[in-house]
Nucleic acid binder design. Structure first.
Lengths: 270, 270
DNA sequence: AATTGAGTTCTGAATAATGGAACTATCGGG
DNA sequence: CCCGATAGTTCCATTATTCAGAACTCAATT
């Protein structure tokens, strides 16, 4: 039979049909267990996984043998330590994070507030790094987290550098959850992106969480294969609107420095 | 075929034969890419993976589609952000870590040095948490890392609570790398474990890294299904042998508190 | 234009995953 | 003590995925 051309559409009606075979099913299980609030028993997983018992049992066994899941003495499944090991290695060596780190640090010292580095992934922002003030506060907390684009400073900053058609494509299949009274909707977001393009700064004025504000600026590679941003975040009582404006410039500067370091570090192919 | 007892050896000559089918092969690839110092090209992976080209290509595609790997514009493979997301969720909700956290914190405040929480996994110690002093030092750095048991305070502490036969089993297939002049060997280690059992404290006297010392104490569940430890770590010039002794007691106390919290938190089944 | 190197796609054959059912605990009453 | 649940595990013929090698495309070199 000839290679796939015209009518592959009739097959792909079901949204994002994954073509990852066995792996896809296993990842689904990993997601289920990882997202649960507590370790899950076999039957709990069975109820949501939509797999026959025999199948599910083997899949869970394989995941456990690989250390991706762990079984406690009661037979309940929890995320495995292997995940930590994999993540820590990749995080520690992430080229982009390494390049940005010193800049994040100096921005933190300048402002005294928490500094975030995030990248755009689909219609979410994933935080890659975070530099906090003196408080011995929770590390890891935010890193790796996926947050919506439309209600985070980094998210809006990232969107602002994308061409209109890509923004529209993203907005098309995105649902806007009203986290706080100030959370943006599809309409107001587009207007705001225009402003961000002009000023070079995005703001989060308690749009994701009441009491939390931030100033952000976009970071991107020349070909837009990489799009993200950095932000300075803090409690509303300290980050008055005046303060946010004071820091808009330094945040833009830091973003700019990171982008030049990227061109040196990654730019000229090998 | 009967369950594993006497002579499974003939089959298991080749170290840790995995029985996880497709998943095992994929995890091997993940390990290769995650351990590399830089993103790898297809051919680089091909050279070490020992798979036919067509096969490898499909496997890498699947991993990339799932976000476990990422392909940069040059076609080089790097660890994917999905790993971070999975790990951050599991870390944040890890029951044991949550229970230990406040205790680690107060130990940190008391000593002013870095406090670690680690668990025994096979013949390695995996660090689950870390509380540092005021310096805005690298988060993640150590967390998820696997270090040898025989040259870390936490590792030796953990070994000290295991019954002799389990210790011997572990030592059997363990190779002792001489990290520093003081690194323990198989022989000296056994003698040291005896001391640790008596005193309740393990020490790392620059055995893993020159200039770094620590005091540790074991933590374990009643049935030994969980074995780990906590430690106070710092530079040799600050952690004199006298200091190490001063903190031996508080470290033991903290370990004890964590164990009682565990019994309350996890103890009575469901 | 011809050659090499790198990556991708195709194919029947081999293998591992599937799913239903039968089996074995373990528990709570009566 | 036995009965019936509920929870988890193992078995095995069937089926779908994966495998491996070769053919193919594409770009950079000579």
């Amino acid at each position: 039979m000839p290679a796939g051309d015209g009518d592959t559409a009739d097959k792909a009606e079901i949204a994002d049909r994954r073509e990852t075979g066995t792996l896809g099913k296993l990842m689904l299980l990993l997601d289920i267990v990882t997202n649960a609030d507590a370790p899950m028993r076999f039957t709990d997983i069975l109820a949501v996984a939509g797999q026959p018992r025999g199948t599910l049992h083997r899949q869970l066994s394989h995941l456990s043998e690989e250390g991706l899941l762990e079984v406690d003495p009661d037979g309940r499944y929890a995320p495995g330590l292997r995940l930590l090991a994999l993540a820590s290695r990749s995080w520690a060596r992430n080229e982009f994070r390494l390049i940005a780190e010193p800049h994040l640090r100096s921005l933190q010292e300048l402002t005294g507030e928490t500094v975030h580095l995030g990248v755009l992934r689909g219609s979410s922002v994933i935080y890659l790094d975070k530099v906090e003030g003196r408080q011995p506060v929770r590390m890891y907390s935010q890193i790796g987290n996926a947050s919506p684009v439309y209600c985070t400073g980094v998210g809006k900053a990232a969107l602002s550098v994308l061409p209109d058609e890509r923004v529209h494509a993203l907005l098309a299949d995105m649902s806007f959850h009203q986290f706080t009274p100030s959370t943006r909707t599809s309409r107001t977001l587009l207007a705001e992106l225009a402003e961000i393009r002009l000023s070079g700064n995005a703001f989060d004025r308690e749009e994701h969480e009441v009491g939390i504000r931030c100033v952000a600026a976009p970071i991107h590679s020349d070909d837009l294969s990489f799009v993200g941003g950095i932000s300075v975040t803090g409690p509303a009582y300290r980050l008055t609107f005046e303060r946010l404006n004071d820091w808009a410039e330094p945040v833009r500067q830091a973003a700019k420095s990171i982008m030049s370091s990227m061109r040196i570090g990654l730019g000229p192919r090998r």
